[in-house]
Amino acid sequence: MDKFNIPTMAQMAANGEEPEILFWVGCAGSFDERAQKITRDICKILHHVGIKFAVLGTEESCTGDPAKRAGNEFLFQMQAMTNIQVLDGYNIKKIVTGCPHCFNTIRNEYPGLGGNYDVIHHSQLIQQLIDDGKLKAEGGESFKGRKITFHDPCYLGRGNGVYEAPRRALEILDAELVEMKRCKSNGLCCGAGGAQMFKEPEKGAKDINIERIEEALDLKPNVIAAGCPFCMTMLSDGVKNFDKEQEVQVLDIAEITARANGL
């Protein structure tokens, strides 16, 4: 794939242009090494289908999700109002996020503070592109016959009722899709939500991601698919815990899509 420039809103505005969609990268997508790969793959998909997009770059800041879940409403609203000023300053209308937490927060909690945008998660973007015939699974790695199971992120699934979009991205692969017993609305959390990502767990019998990975590994999958950078960390750590990195890959929906299309 050719190298391409990732335009920032500042550059676009300087050229008097507006993007079709803003890609909200999120903190994990910006700083976490593993999540950065997913971020770049989302950009590749956007570039591949020819959507005019931009990112905020250094003007982006935490949505305030972890602060809010941890009970720090002041910090959340400070972050939210600052972000809304930036987004409205660029006249943003449509946003795609690389993280279900950013997606939920901007979509559901920003409107009450004056920020009204059409927000989708990247799995929904991929679903739309597939349904519009703009995105297929060709020209890249074949997933044919490989066993894939999808782990529902809480803030995408139960939080916002999005269960089918990520599965649509997997259905076109001609792979063997298998569901864990606890899936969709019964899905088990990876253990990172509600600001758990940023603290040690309370004492207990085991870690939540271990409980989840045991369930996933029971299916003997080749790939565990994820749709959230926090889940990605928890699931990858779980796979490592069982020394299964050689047999089982943990991949984001965007990475799978990019690989299947040779991006």
Partner: peptide, 21 residues
């Protein structure tokens, strides 16, 4: 979050570095 705009201790000026790799 308050100082760096991210829940981890990274500099906000590094936020767009992922695009350079």
């Amino acid at each position: 979050t308050e100082n760096n705009g991210a829940p981890w201790k990274y500099s906000p000026s590094d936020r767009f570095n992922w695009a350079n790799d």
